[in-house]
Design a protein around this nucleic acid. Structure first.
Lengths: 136, 136
DNA sequence: TTGCTCCTCACGTCACGTGAGGTGGC
DNA sequence: TTGCTCCTCACGTCACGTGAGGTGGC
């Protein structure tokens, strides 16, 4: 369980929740302890779900993905489109986050300049911040 | 309002919520209509909040940021540390998302191969997927 | 015996979203 | 008059988080 959580980035609570609402399909249990035994197919599915979730897909979308999976190769076109769409979505998100990362770095530099009383670096940081803000 | 929402990426509902809980400080109003008039200082603050939110900071963290802002240069060290921390956090997140983006792209290619009955591309995609999964 | 990891179940929480009903200015 | 954008307020929602109380195997 712990390992699955680390691998996927989902919390243990989230994985239990996903199983409960049917996103994971049937999950085997250890007969003695009742602990979950995630099979290879479930691991693969959770990998995909983790990427889809990261790309902004919600629970309903993931339900749709699971439903398409159940149709196998018949749904190949829809599955391709689904992954293409989320891939583009995530690419755009990554780009936005890169800009915001630059902003945060510059803000750190700005406050460092103020911390040490360095007006030149401060002014330069402010200028570069304005550049970055244009890309918002 | 609309413009502020687009610029920041926050929904209008979120901006109203943030104002209500005190994150935005005092916001001017048009005397006739009661519509919000975001001043330059508020715009700057919302820019910063948007980047901090994107880097995973929650409402409590943003409250802390606003409190530090109120202390001005006295809190320069804490503000530098705050931005440095969130910057690193976001950098790591961007890296994780880049890997996941690659995964989604490969999955799209995989289903495209199945769609067109192209077993070579399918096999190649599966191999590259295994590579990507090692970087999870 | 003592940790450690896992379990279920009920309820709580965070960060907003939504809908009703209404207003000011082109 | 008709859109359009904004407003408030109350309630709803989504996606989990948490805590209580408990279990199996080193």
């Amino acid at each position: 369980m712990q390992e699955m959580s680390r691998r996927s980035g989902f919390s243990e609570a989230t994985l239990r929740y996903y199983e409960r609402i049917g996103l994971l399909g049937p999950v085997d249990r250890d007969p003695g302890s009742g602990h979950r035994q995630f099979g290879a197919a479930t691991v693969d599915r959770v990998d995909a779900l983790a990427c889809l979730r990261s790309s902004g897909m919600g629970v309903e979308g993931m339900r749709r993905y699971v439903a398409l999976l159940g149709q196998g190769d018949e749904a190949a076109t829809e599955l391709r489109e689904l992954f293409e769409g989320q891939s583009e979505h995530l690419a755009a998100e990554v780009e936005r986050l890169r800009v915001r990362h630059e902003y945060l770095t510059l803000k750190a530099r700005l406050w460092q300049a103020r911390e040490h009383g360095d007006p030149d670096t401060e002014a330069a940081s402010i200028l570069r911040l304005k550049e970055v803000l244009r890309r918002f």
